[in-house]
């Protein structure tokens, strides 16, 4: 299983999460997003970049409750509500945005 990217096969698990986090780059993110039927805008990138920063600092993908709380602290209430995030990532912000960000499935994600 893999994403075909720049003539390479980038391995992912059965749900589409990258096997090797270090293989991620912004162009690959666009490809994963396309697979997920997500058209990336600046707002999408804000969330994806935030997740990557969170992972870089704490070595985990945050649960949705933690994501909304941390986003609220950084970007304010209008850019962190469940409604806002589900509009950006209809199949679940933590799940879909983490996949696009090249991170593992969030711990505690059900």
């Amino acid at each position: 299983m893999g994403y075909h990217f720049n003539g390479q096969d980038i391995a992912h698990d059965e749900e589409g999460y990258l096997t090797d986090l270090s293989q991620w780059n912004a162009d690959l993110a666009l490809l994963i997003a396309k697979d997920e039927n997500v058209a990336m805008t600046d707002e999408h990138w804000e969330v994806v970049n935030f997740l990557r920063e969170y992972y870089d600092e704490y070595q985990i993908a945050p649960a949705i409750r933690v994501l909304t709380k941390a986003l609220a602290k950084k970007m304010g209430p209008e850019k962190s509500s469940n409604k806002y995030l589900y509009e950006l990532f209809p199949y679940g912000p933590a799940k879909q945005a983490c996949k696009i960000a090249g991170l593992p499935k969030p711990t505690g994600c059900v």
Partner: peptide, 14 residues
């Protein structure tokens, strides 16, 4: 090994 020590710093978020 995966260094998971920084994850303890996220506990406050939880």
């Amino acid at each position: 090994f995966k260094n998971f020590s920084n994850t303890y710093k996220a506990l406050g978020d939880y």
